[in-house]
Design a protein around this nucleic acid. Structure first.
Lengths: 116, 116
DNA sequence: GTAAGAGATTGATGAGTGTCAATATTTATA
DNA sequence: TATAAATATTGACACTCATCAATCTCTTAC
């Protein structure tokens, strides 16, 4: 129950980039989402989670997919979670992440010029 | 006639983010495009150009739309051009930029999970 | 309660970036 | 040729960020 809107919640309200000029406020809302995605490791993390069976993936699996330290992966997951692109769920000792596909679709709609 | 592929030319070849895990190479190709878009000013620049009548806009108009110095706008336009999202054309003293909407659509397809 | 494992946090460091003032380049015109 | 206007480039500075080693927190098992 939080009142602060994550960037992901602010993106569903904009018409496509190519239809009419984005307002400064809209751009400020969308940019953090893109910045979160604009890293090769985070792109692959989102892709790994989203395409994983069940739509979710355990951090333990994600760590093995990269030749990066565990804190680094944890940091990237946090960035994606804070911006609202990934959901977190702790089950026992393990943490599972799930992609918000609706958020990705909304973002794509703003960039690509299609209506959702 | 250049042989180097701009990021924008490498993005049309990937299946959606949510369908199968992005390879490291694919992620390296897409990230620069997203990084170019992941700035509020550049987002608005692309939007201004793309939604402008005729699909193109003069730099002189773009400068007036922001309270930023002329070199700063020029810098942002260069970033967008280098990555292949904007095309440049010089006509007389003025320079016109045009958005590569196909590139935006391809990028949106990778993010949003739809096939182009 | 103690040990072990999963994941997050902290602090540090080097690389990258947005911005501006100053300057350069290019084009048109007088 | 000289002058003015439109863009681009350069150099500098503050700030952000990706990464790691070390440490911490939490959960389960013995």
């Amino acid at each position: 129950m939080h009142l602060e809107l994550t960037p992901v919640e602010t993106v569903a309200c904009c018409s496509p980039l190519t239809r009419e000029p984005l307002s400064a406020a809209e751009a400020d809302g969308i940019a953090p989402l893109l910045r979160a995605l604009a890293d090769p490791v985070r792109l692959r993390l989102v892709s790994l989670v989203a395409s994983h069976e069940g739509g979710e993936a355990c951090v333990c699996d994600l760590n093995d997919a990269f030749e990066l330290s565990q804190p680094t992966i944890s940091h990237h997951l946090k960035v994606l979670h804070e911006v609202g692109l990934l959901e977190r769920e702790k089950r026992g000792v393990w943490v599972y992440y799930r992609a918000r596909t609706q958020a990705l679709e909304n973002l794509a709609a703003v960039i690509g010029g299609r209506t959702v």
